[in-house]
Amino acid sequence: MEQAELIAAAQQGDRAAFDELVRQTFVDTFTLACRLTGNEEDARDVVQDAYLRAWRAIGKFRGEAQFSTWMYRITANASATHLRKRHRHRTEPLDEVTEPADMRPETQPATAFDSADTLEHVAAAINELPPKLRSVVVLKDVYDLPHEAIAEELGISVAAAKVRLHRARRRLRDELYEQGAEAHAV
């Protein structure tokens, strides 16, 4: 069955059709949840919440965007809710930079960025960003969502989304090209 047919069936209450949509998009949604939360434990909660929300709202899906893009937006919203709750319970700073636990030079992104394993280092540098900056850079630069959609799902203004993106890119650049930054500052 094509995805459009599955969506139409799910909108009529066909659970089996919705389950199939879950199977088709699960790895993608889980990956986004991991990128947004920075860890698999939180991603598990976010991904389940996202699919529950999607099931409740499937009747409202009009097909103007792709189903995967619709799921990205729901996942972003679920992640923002989850991180806000976690922040209240654990009083973790959402804005401050957390220091990497392993400080050996060979594990630091700045010195390792030019290695063959670049993608992994960028992913690790994203994980080191504060959640508020991480969410925006992941949704915009990795998943290509428009600023308006990002702002709506994260519950912030478009201007705030743009400012956070600017700060996130700058921090990533500093993390990954630290030596270049020093040279430039001379």
Partner: peptide, 10 residues
Amino acid sequence: TLQQLRTRYI
């Protein structure tokens, strides 16, 4: 590089 992460699934 960030764009390439889109298809690096976990």
